[in-house]
Simulated assay, not measured.
Amino acid sequence: MKQFVAAYGTEPDGVWAAPGRVNLIGEHTDYNDGFVLPFALPQRTVVAASRSDTPEWTVWSEQADEQITFDLSNRVSGWGAYVAGVVWVLREAGFDVPGARVVITSDVPLGAGLSSSAALESAVLTALVDLGGLDLPVDERPALAQRAENDYAGMPCGIMDQSASIRSREGHALFLDCRSLEVEHIPFDVAAAGLAVLVIDTKAPHRHVTGEYAARRATCEEAARALGVPALRDATLSMVAELADPVQQRRARHVVTEDQRVLDTVALLREGRVREIGPLMTASHTSMRDDFEITVPEVDTAVEAALSAGAYGARMTGGGFGGCVLALVDSDATDKVASAVAEAFAARGYIPPEPFVAVPGPGAVRL
């Protein structure tokens, strides 16, 4: 990688990559022990790295245009926390993590709900495991990457993003049971069905760490305790109807119905009935808007415009409060739908959105 040579004057020992993701359906279900159905994007974070002889890590980020150096005595903040968190969590798990010189480049959009942080963690983790010859099975890696984000970077995310970035398979969606961590690779060849998944980056900035995401998670945990179940995955709609707190009731209703929508989507995809998942996507968005209350005007506008332009279904993807919308459209209608969304945004004075077609790609890999 030329950036590594420019930064350090030598070739790297290796180059690794991990993708961003979109979530086809199953939002805010992961930390409720539920079901999710993400897939990996072609956009990736790429890490070039070489071992160093000292227990310190020097990291240059092309996106941040900044270099940091830290050792085990440092507490790192900002973008570097996602790198230092991986070193920390591997050490906490008992691994002898090698010191390293690292260069990071990425084309995963930041703050768009496409899991740029998970892509960074997953790429760094994969690189350090290989550099150190660490005995860490692939199916155990997402939990460590998640802990780096939860306990070091301070974002209380579930395990979906890291699982998608590490365990995805090209041409498939990743059906993940967030309780057992069992996965099933569901064929998702939308092109063969004459369809496309259009991703619309609304450019509405995410505000997860301001506390809204953490507040939703806390309310779900409170609702589960009130219902006497281990997690909302174990609740039913009749149980949810008995909750006294109306906010808890709305949040829980979203989770219970969203879990069912994931299962229904998987059942349709197993039968090759791709077009029929559209209404489930739209119902998911309605639930996020009305019961979980995590949408913003830009994403609601994008969904409405896409549906009006002929999309079979559309929904916000990601944790909410900004980010991207997915629309299931005919493969020859991507430009038409993208134009309709752009016109709706212009009419409301929003920042122009950026559309692209998402094709399911592979998980983390050494290049």
Rank of each mutant, 00 (worst) to 15 (best):
101 R>K: 12
160 M>L: 13
88 W>Y: 11
87 V>H: 06
329 V>E: 13
237 L>M: 12
47 V>G: 08
127 A>Q: 05
18 A>H: 03
89 V>E: 13
59 V>M: 12
87 V>Y: 04
3 Q>G: 07
133 G>F: 14
216 R>C: 01
116 S>M: 03
112 A>W: 05
90 L>G: 00
200 I>S: 11
21 R>V: 03
365 V>T: 04
191 A>E: 15
118 A>M: 00
110 L>I: 14
298 E>Q: 13
366 R>T: 08
31 Y>K: 11
209 V>M: 14
259 D>F: 12
246 P>V: 04
226 A>L: 05
279 P>L: 04
262 V>G: 03
166 I>V: 15
245 D>W: 04
207 R>L: 07
48 A>V: 08
116 S>G: 09
323 G>S: 09
185 H>G: 00
77 S>H: 14
199 V>R: 10
285 H>T: 06
290 D>I: 08
225 R>Y: 00
239 M>T: 03
315 R>T: 05
149 E>I: 13
363 G>A: 00
6 A>Y: 01
154 G>P: 01
185 H>W: 04
323 G>P: 02
230 P>L: 04
346 A>T: 11
72 L>T: 11
255 V>Y: 04
188 F>M: 09
222 E>Y: 12
16 W>F: 13
218 A>F: 03
172 H>M: 02
137 P>V: 02
184 E>S: 08
198 L>D: 10
151 D>T: 13
243 L>F: 12
44 R>L: 00
47 V>M: 02
100 A>M: 04
272 G>R: 10
218 A>Y: 02
100 A>V: 06
114 L>A: 03
169 R>S: 02
120 L>R: 01
253 R>V: 01
97 V>M: 06
91 R>Q: 11
93 A>M: 01
146 Q>R: 12
143 A>M: 13
67 Q>W: 07
54 T>R: 14
278 G>N: 05
215 A>T: 10
202 T>H: 15
50 S>K: 08
144 L>I: 09
311 A>W: 02
220 C>D: 10
172 H>T: 03
